[in-house]
Amino acid sequence: MRHALRWIVMAGVWSALAGTAWGAEAPVPPAESSSTILEAIAFYAMAAVALLSGLAILVSRNLVRNVVCLLAALGAVAGLYFLLAANLLGAIQLIVYAGGTLVLITFGVMLTSRPGSDRQLVRGWERIAGGVVCVTLFIGLCMVLLCTEWATVAASAEPTTVAAVGRALLTDYLVPFELASVLLLVMLIGAAYLVRRDGESGAEDDADRC
């Protein structure tokens, strides 16, 4: 089990690196070319890593191992972004998500983990109800997306989309872009407010520190 997880994580990291190299080398392969097979192989490999890591999150009982599996899944999905010619998004995923958010989650695990874990699964009937919901939703999703003829356009030829995405963010999506910064500020203040100790106000804390 431990070795399998180690291999999954290694594969996730390597697939992310390979995806990065792929994105740098041949960002947007034409739809019908010799690189299609390579693209398919990369897709299958990263999809397998993402799904296996997701499954490992589901079954593993060790919290730290869960977090590391999420890291592998995020790396694999970042590689898929590179395959989809979303270079900027893949880089953001690796830097912000795998680098920042996951460290935050690791801190959360360290702060909240207690020796002697409790029961891991919900009660019997809740498990059955949850399983029915999940299976129904998944089958419905698959039926919809496999039975629909999605209109697709041939892949574009521009090597990278970073400049175009930046332009879109600062023109068409300027208001949500600014709102996102306000949201981040609100999150910082809210998180700092939530986790302060009871009966401790910011002013007194500052006075104590001085």
Binding site: F43, A47, A50, L51, G54, L55, I57, L58, L63, N66, A73, V77, L80, L84, I105, G108, V109, T112, S117, D118, R119, Q120, L121, V122, E126, R127, G130, G131, V133, C134, L137, F138, L141, C142, L145, L146, W150
Partner: peptide
């Protein structure tokens, strides 16, 4: 189709974990 299917699978796995596990962090 492949990407949509993979997205649906990831979503399904996450949903199972969301509904079945009891640890807040998981």
């Amino acid at each position: 189709h492949g990407y949509l299917l993979l997205g649906a699978m990831l979503f399904g796995l996450g949903l199972v974990g969301f509904l079945a596990r009891r640890n807040l962090i998981v």
